[in-house]
Amino acid sequence: VDNKFNKEQQNAFYEILHLPNLNEEQRNAFIQSLKDDPSQSANLLAEAKKLNDAQA
């Protein structure tokens, strides 16, 4: 993981990586967004979790 991520951002990265119901395309999009703007990690994680739950 890129060293410019802080602890919260790293946690978001790993959580998104391991959400079971996202397809690869969705997962990659969230990860790319996280890399583009790490400050949005909490929002991105919340969105990813919502999508993950919706696809459960």
Rank of each mutant, 00 (worst) to 15 (best):
V1I: 12
V1W: 01
V1Y: 02
V1L: 07
V1T: 07
D2Y: 00
D2P: 01
D2F: 01
D2I: 02
D2S: 02
N3T: 11
N3D: 15
N3S: 05
N3A: 04
N3I: 04
K4S: 09
K4G: 15
K4T: 10
K4N: 15
F5C: 15
F5I: 15
F5R: 14
F5W: 07
F5E: 14
N6L: 05
N6P: 13
K7G: 13
K7F: 02
K7L: 03
K7S: 04
K7D: 15
K7P: 15
K7R: 05
K7A: 04
K7C: 12
K7N: 13
K7E: 10
E8N: 03
E8R: 01
E8G: 04
E8Y: 01
Q9W: 15
Q9S: 06
Q9F: 08
Q10L: 12
Q10M: 15
Q10F: 12
Q10C: 15
Q10K: 12
Q10V: 05
N11R: 13
N11K: 13
N11M: 15
N11I: 13
N11G: 06
A12C: 11
A12S: 06
A12M: 04
A12H: 09
F13Q: 05
F13D: 01
F13N: 03
F13G: 03
F13R: 06
F13K: 07
F13I: 06
Y14K: 09
Y14G: 06
Y14D: 13
Y14E: 15
Y14P: 01
Y14M: 14
Y14N: 15
Y14S: 08
Y14A: 09
Y14C: 14
E15P: 01
E15Y: 07
E15S: 05
E15H: 06
I16Q: 00
I16S: 01
I16M: 09
I16K: 00
I16L: 10
I16G: 01
I16P: 00
L17W: 07
L17C: 12
L17D: 05
L17Y: 12
L17N: 09
H18L: 12
H18G: 11
H18W: 14
L19W: 02
L19E: 01
L19I: 02
L19G: 00
P20Q: 10
P20T: 09
P20A: 07
P20K: 05
P20I: 07
P20V: 05
N21I: 03
N21E: 09
N21G: 08
L22Y: 00
L22M: 04
L22W: 00
L22N: 00
L22S: 00
N23Q: 10
N23A: 02
N23I: 11
N23F: 10
N23W: 13
N23E: 07
E24M: 10
E24C: 14
E24R: 04
E24K: 11
E24T: 05
E24Q: 12
E24L: 10
E25L: 12
E25K: 08
E25M: 12
E25S: 11
Q26C: 09
Q26E: 05
R27H: 04
R27F: 03
R27G: 02
R27T: 07
R27M: 08
N28R: 12
N28G: 05
A29D: 14
A29V: 14
A29P: 02
A29C: 10
F30K: 02
F30W: 02
F30L: 14
F30A: 06
I31M: 09
I31Y: 04
Q32W: 07
S33D: 10
S33A: 08
S33K: 09
S33G: 10
S33Y: 02
S33E: 15
S33M: 13
S33H: 15
S33I: 13
S33V: 10
L34K: 00
L34G: 01
L34N: 00
L34D: 00
L34Q: 03
K35N: 12
K35L: 14
K35W: 14
K35H: 07
D36Q: 10
D36R: 13
D37A: 02
D37I: 07
D37E: 09
D37N: 09
D37C: 07
P38G: 06
P38N: 03
S39Y: 13
S39R: 11
S39D: 13
Q40I: 10
Q40R: 14
Q40A: 08
Q40S: 11
Q40K: 14
Q40H: 11
Q40P: 02
Q40G: 07
Q40C: 07
S41L: 14
S41R: 04
S41M: 10
S41I: 12
S41W: 14
S41T: 08
S41N: 03
A42W: 08
A42N: 13
A42T: 10
N43Q: 05
N43T: 06
N43P: 03
N43S: 13
L44R: 05
L44M: 07
L44G: 01
L44N: 02
L44H: 07
L44D: 01
L44Y: 07
L45F: 04
L45S: 05
L45T: 06
L45I: 03
A46F: 10
A46R: 03
A46S: 09
A46Q: 11
A46V: 12
A46P: 02
E47A: 09
E47W: 07
E47N: 06
E47T: 10
E47G: 10
E47L: 08
A48V: 04
A48S: 09
A48E: 00
A48W: 00
A48Q: 00
A48F: 01
A48D: 00
K49C: 09
K49N: 10
K49E: 03
K49H: 03
K50T: 12
K50F: 14
L51A: 13
L51W: 08
L51G: 02
N52I: 02
N52P: 01
N52S: 06
N52M: 03
N52T: 03
D53H: 12
D53Y: 06
D53W: 08
D53C: 12
D53L: 11
A54H: 13
A54W: 12
A54G: 11
A54E: 14
Q55C: 15
Q55T: 08
Q55H: 08
A56I: 14
A56E: 14
A56K: 13
A56M: 14
A56C: 15
